[in-house]
Amino acid sequence: MDLATPPPDLYGRPGPDRFLRRLTAFSDWYTPILGAPGLRRSPRRRAPRPAAPLTLAVTSRTMVSADVVELGLADPAAGPLPPWQPGARLLLTLPSGRERHYSLCGDPADRYGYRIAVRRIADGAGGSVEIHDQLHPGARLTVRRPRNGFAFCAEPAVLFLAGGIGVTPLLPMAREAERLGLDWRLVHAGRTAEALPYTAQLRALGPDRVELWADDRRGGPPDGAELLSRAPEGAAVYCCGPAPMLAAVQRALDASPARALHFERFGAAPIVDGRPFTLRLGAEGPELAVPADRSALDVARELRPDLPYSCHQGFCGTCKVNLLSGTPEHRDRRLTPEERAGGALLPCVSRAAEGETLVLDV
């Protein structure tokens, strides 16, 4: 059919349909305004501006176990804070310039205060020690607004598995599960009873639903099958803890009553299909061998300990560097295709093919 000629009347009458004639005329006038191919084109929207970071003050400091401190954070002007959901994290910039992620462990309904809990790691990279030793009420921090990569879906039956400080994102989830009347259980495991934070709150929340597991009293840590045996039939499992705990749960999931697993790990995931390659720090800088089982970031920090990092998992972007040459294997979950094409690289997770050399602008 010739689209320039209005079709016959829709009801079979001999004359042309007046409505379709007007519609065709409107289309002939309107389409050139938009340009070919016509109505499919739409104006490009501007990318939203990133939200400005927050300046928060430390309002309280409480030891919630032998080596875990809880900090309360609030707007110095007493204004409301951005909302959040269980599982969300804050990215803190510490006075030293270090950036660290911490899970929110307070009440999402409290719009005037955030709470985080930090375990002191004496032989760590310094962030937890700085928080324990230097952050007291009145101190101010730059904080990125809450982000959530471990969202709680509120399935009807839920098992929460916490390893040590891994209870922090799970505590708000358990509160929400209790509020919603879900069938939930929680196992909190750690080396000693004294090292387990928030035991009193957990017991008060659900004394018949919470099990505390102290390795020194139970003859060692639980295995995955034992942990998952607490799951209601068809339950979703939310697990946060050290890598061995998560690996044990993953191995035992298929043979358990549970049917789904959501998890957040403490640190870097094990390297999968890693191959050795070479890293050069600067166009004329030294070359470093990156083994198959280590990250480029860890190797680079041996020579350049000032290189920033935070999550070690490829989602925060703190360690981002510019790639001068080489072909990378991007394994992050943050960079856009445009950023990668522009040379951005997250060395905490990204790698290269065997024998390849990546030259970083550091």
Rank of each mutant, 00 (worst) to 15 (best):
P222R: 04
P222S: 02
P222C: 03
P222D: 01
D223P: 04
G224T: 04
G224M: 01
A225I: 02
A225L: 01
A225P: 01
A225D: 01
E226K: 07
E226P: 05
E226T: 13
E226L: 10
E226C: 07
E226A: 14
L227P: 00
L227A: 00
L228C: 00
L228A: 00
L228Q: 00
S229A: 15
S229E: 08
R230I: 08
R230T: 07
A231D: 07
A231Q: 11
A231I: 10
A231T: 09
P232R: 04
P232L: 09
E233G: 08
E233D: 14
G234W: 10
G234D: 06
G234H: 10
A235S: 11
A235C: 09
A235E: 08
A236M: 05
A236E: 05
A236H: 10
V237Q: 03
V237I: 12
V237Y: 04
V237N: 00
V237P: 04
Y238V: 08
Y238R: 06
C239N: 02
C239R: 00
C240I: 07
C240Q: 05
P242E: 10
P242T: 13
P242D: 14
P242C: 13
P242I: 11
A243H: 09
A243K: 05
A243V: 10
A243E: 15
P244R: 12
P244H: 11
M245T: 09
M245Q: 10
M245S: 07
L246E: 03
L246A: 11
L246D: 02
L246I: 15
L246T: 09
A247P: 07
A247E: 14
A247I: 11
A248Y: 04
V249H: 05
V249E: 04
Q250C: 12
Q250R: 14
Q250E: 15
Q250H: 12
R251Y: 06
R251A: 15
R251F: 08
R251C: 12
A252C: 06
L253P: 06
L253E: 05
D254N: 11
D254A: 15
S256D: 02
S256A: 14
S256E: 02
S256I: 02
P257K: 09
P257V: 15
A258T: 14
A258E: 09
A258G: 14
R259S: 15
R259G: 12
A260P: 00
A260V: 03
L261W: 01
L261V: 05
H262I: 00
H262F: 02
F263L: 14
F263I: 01
F263T: 02
E264S: 11
E264C: 10
E264N: 14
E264P: 08
R265F: 04
R265I: 12
R265P: 03
R265H: 11
F266V: 14
F266T: 13
G267T: 15
A268S: 15
A268Q: 13
